[in-house]
Design a protein around this nucleic acid. Structure first.
Lengths: 255, 255
DNA sequence: CGGCAAATTGAAGTATTTCAACGTCGGTGG
DNA sequence: CCACCGACGTTGAAATACTTCAATTTGCCG
């Protein structure tokens, strides 16, 4: 594994990572003892498809994507993971997707056997793993709902809402400057096109269609401002999915 | 809950259901003591969206679908579940989707509190739950991969492959008569259209396009024969996902 | 400043949606 | 038993959206 990613130190700050806060000290000590922190550059592959993963990882910083290279050469992106998300298969089984960094990323890794041993000894850790998996399942389902829209603009609107709601607070992609809601798009147009099951050209047109209708402002390709949140939610469908409390907090601060 | 579904008896046959086989006898006895078997008719709703589910269920027979009614009146189907699949949230949290029967279905239900208590007492049961969730996650990811195809015929081909591979053996939807591979489509065209993110008209055209190209034969709308499996897999992309061993067994028996 | 990668725009071809009409099957009631 | 009805599937034709390929612009880095 040492040929991929740079080992950047031991487990400094592990206990600060959201899923680990609140674990008992002795367990944290055991986790830190077997933990390595590594960093990856943009596009670097962390795990290959069909590889038998020998470690379990948690994202400390940045964003990872789960992808699959299709037989016809197309790349499908089936998931994005942010700070605090777990990756790698906890139980045996080959990985059906590759995992790669989107931008700079840092991860904590644990040897899988040791991690699973700890899992059987500490119910708290087992529960943490279970919650991580349930979290992934929710994300996958939300994603499917977005993909269910026919029009690219609708899928894009859904993605922007997801960015606000799910990833906004954790990865600081959504923020409020000067009582305006700004979003950072953490992917290139090409990657996002794969994610939204379309092509970069269509995606670009969709961005500009939203801008022409006054729903967003494109400051740069990666920095947009949301002008009409409710219109975006209408486009995306299934408003309720995008409307949990902490998102409404964000919105209410627009004054 | 008694207004929904008919109570059809106690837990006869629970130990025969795939995920439960191999559990220790004492645990099975405890499970049977708190278990109820219920049956549902086509279209009947088993759990409402946003409801706090008070039970955990396992499908004994038939097929359930996970769906969501969009604000604009569209119905999105985000998952199909068959015999042996678990549903309901194991840990707290509202349900984001409704669950309804597709055709006749029978389920085993357990009061959630009692089930979770057993879960903490029996690691075997906890592991069973974990595996069920991982199974759902795999299904969701496969589904996303299929939805990622642009063309309706490609998504349909992917669905047909999924029918063979994932659900064929468990729900008897795929069978071999007279050395021909036959498939039962367990959904109406309208439902399948929701599932494949398209409309019934386009779906119908896709079925007939596959038939015109000789990949399938439409005996009735719900009974098709597969003529050219490898061409279907090419269309669906990501062959490897559709090619695990027991599926190849099925294929090899075509001789 | 030049060069490269990424994003955008244009134009033509293709696929899908939409609306409308028609056919088929199964059941219900005369 | 047959006629009718409704639900569902299929087909047709026009409108729309998307893909594809090519050309152009933009922004960034050496």
């Amino acid at each position: 594994m040492d040929n991929r990613g740079n080992r950047t130190g031991q487990a400094d700050g592990l206990k600060m990572l959201h899923p680990f806060t609140g674990l008992p000290e002795p367990l944290l000590a055991e986790l830190e003892a077997i933990c390595t922190r590594r960093s990856y550059a943009h596009g670097q592959v962390i795990a290959e498809e069909m590889e038998h993963l020998t470690f379990v990882g948690f994202i400390a910083k940045g964003m990872l994507r789960m992808q699959k290279l299709q037989a016809d050469g197309r790349l499908s992106i089936v998931g994005l993971m942010v700070e605090g998300d777990m990756f790698g298969r906890v139980f045996n089984g080959p990985l059906h997707f590759s995992i790669a960094a989107t931008g700079e990323a840092e991860v904590y890794t644990f040897p899988r056997d040791a991690f699973e041993t700890l899992t059987t000894e500490w119910p708290e850790l087992e529960r943490l793993v279970m919650l991580s998996i349930l979290n992934e399942l929710d994300a996958a389902r939300e994603w499917m709902l977005i993909l269910t829209n026919y029009r690219v603009t609708e899928r894009l609107a859904g993605f922007l809402m997801l960015l606000c709601r799910r990833w906004g607070n954790v990865a600081n992609l959504a923020r409020i400057d000067d009582s305006r809601l700004s979003l950072t798009i953490p992917l290139s147009r090409a990657d996002l096109a794969h994610f939204l099951a379309t092509r970069p050209e269509s995606l670009s047109r969709a961005f500009h269609a939203l801008a022409d209708d006054g729903l967003i402002v494109l400051r740069t390709p990666y920095d947009i401002e949301i002008q009409d949140l409710s219109a975006l939610m209408d486009l995306a469908g299934s408003e309720d999915l995008f409307m949990p409390s902490h998102f409404m907090d964000l919105v209410s601060r627009l004054s």
